[in-house]
Design a protein around this nucleic acid. Structure first.
Lengths: 322, 322
DNA sequence: TCAAAAGTGTTATCCTTACACCCATGT
DNA sequence: ACATGGGTGTAAGGATAACACTTTTGA
């Protein structure tokens, strides 16, 4: 609860230069392409775009945009800060410098990058296969993760800890009659980390360890991605950010599929349509799309005006219980 | 929307030391004492506790705790990150180093500090007099701020900008038949800043400028405080954080008054009691308090167990429209 | 004709908000 | 007696989630 570590120097005797740290900007860039939520990665390794914050950057945000553009050729629209944390930069065991990591969530559309940069788009469910409940509960959950979590809970000697561990797992994963809550993506990852079911939990093993639960990423990038997913899943319910991921015009079903891709669960179609239309977020273009397999669908576009009308614009989404 | 600035160096050629920055930790520490929301300040100037992040700090959070303790003698319970931003450290006009500011919200109870440190507790409404709607709409709003905002909107030559400015003001301040939303504290401050109605908006004038709207603080501390207030007002509605501000035992009315102090508006008593009791957040101690002026009230305590039961514990609060 | 998607109507249920009222204590 | 705060009952209205059903196209 309360920290006893106290540094030696007095607050008034500040010498900023002597306490220099370096700052890294890390980007979780999301797009949705034909029904799949994608995350932008760089290198052949699984890493998020990132780079140091430099003197030339006008702000943290513009530094982040610059790095993403340089590394992937993509320019970002909407961005929002996720979290800041600090790590020790070590040489051997001795800490020599601090690195502060400032992470952002960015939304864009998957398009061709300008130059030939080493980047790719991957489904975020490659990293979090247990998060996709659109086709029902994924097999990995009952078959592998739940038994492992049970074992992890049971391996504690203290019965209180056993109970507490299992309770956390049950809440996070919707067990024991509880409902699945897609917003708990970060808590779930953290539980799997604690239970050592993700490769990142064992240092040095990232490349070698058999990945029990999803693809690993370098350093703590997967945790950062989980933070971004959780944030986005929460946010689409009360801010009209989904539209950042849509093409200029779209049908209601396309919009619904995008929401479902992000939420990892299905939406009740009639209610979804009503709710969206009620809120005056979109307007008809007049055209229809007929190559969708059924009755032609009306095309819509986002009403840009709502961004001006409501800085605090709301979007409500009906997630079905099914 | 999109930033053209691109730094000169290649991402692969990273030399962290060459891009050293310094990091400051800034704390918004809140307590509620007899019906007033208080913020912890240091010095005779109005400043938030803060200090540089140092090598000796185990983490950002522990660094923050250490600084607050050193500067004020208070140890913090619950803390949560607010926001990170960057500024240029200038000598004259030339930027020489970057300062990254990482701000936190901390909750505690107002108690005697151990040593004699230069700190004090102030009502946060000293800095934001327009935010307290417990006794109705504060006079400063219709008498001063609304006319000034109107004038600010009208002074734009472009009619679109005029309309947009007024629309933002009307939404943020609940004008033109809109309802007051206490969570928009940050947007309101930012509007007043843009309209130059707060002293901080005019550099150099902080001490001299007649403070039209509330007390000024150094640098951007008041904006950080606004961020903390907005966050706390949002958070008390879905997480049981109010209890961090309560003494070990309390009556339901005391709890209600605390919520009202934070929200800056009144709560419907019968519904408040039901909602709190329904949620199993508290339990009776068995004692009663009889010096409250009326019928003796039952004493309650927070059920610590809920923190274990629900990492994602909810609290719902009924704010009355009155 | 059937599959697939677009749409509309309606209902059961729960939650929110408010109103009306009674209870217990001190002055 | 009355002021002050504690405490209960209940009903109106709105939002949510579900069910049932019709419409329009292409294969």
């Amino acid at each position: 609860m309360h920290d006893k570590t106290t540094p030696a120097k007095k607050p008034t005797a500040r010498s900023k230069r002597s306490r220099a740290v370096s700052a890294d900007l890390i980007a979780v860039v999301i797009a949705v392409t034909n029904g799949g939520p994608r995350v932008l990665t760089i290198g052949q390794a699984d890493a998020l775009p990132s780079g140091p914050f430099e003197l030339g950057h006008r702000s943290l945000q513009s530094g982040l945009r610059a790095w993403v553009e340089r590394q992937t050729g993509h320019s970002l629209g909407y961005i929002e800060q996720l979290y800041t944390f600090a790590d020790r930069d070590r040489i051997g065991d001795e800490p020599v410098q601090r690195v502060i990591s400032i992470s952002y969530l960015g939304l864009t559309r998957e398009e061709q990058a300008d130059g030939q940069t080493m980047h790719s788009w991957r489904s975020w469910y490659d990293y979090f296969p247990w998060e996709d409940h659109r086709a029902g509960v994924p097999a990995i959950l009952p078959d592998i993760l739940v038994p492992r979590l049970r074992a992890w809970a049971d391996e504690a000697s203290d019965p209180d800890i056993r109970h507490h561990r299992w309770q956390r797992a049950a809440i996070a994963f919707g067990l024991d009659g509880r409902v699945w809550n897609e917003e708990l993506a970060l808590q779930r990852y953290e539980l799997l980390y604690e239970a050592e079911l993700v490769a990142e939990a064992k240092p040095g093993n990232i490349a070698s360890a058999p990945s029990i639960a999803g693809l690993a990423m370098i350093a703590d990038h997967r945790r950062i991605l989980a933070t971004g997913i959780a944030r986005l899943r929460t946010k689409i319910k009360y801010r009209p950010v989904v539209f950042e991921l849509m093409p200029p015009t779209f049908t209601l079903l396309q919009l619904q599929r995008t929401v479902e891709a992000l939420a990892g669960r299905l939406v009740h179609k009639p209610n979804f349509r009503r709710l969206i239309e009620e809120q005056d977020l979109i307007e008809e273009t007049g055209e229809t799309m007929s190559d969708t397999g059924g009755r032609p669908a009306k095309r819509f576009r986002f009403r840009q005006a709502v961004l001006a009308e409501r800085t605090v614009a709301g979007t409500k989404l009906p997630l079905s219980r099914v």
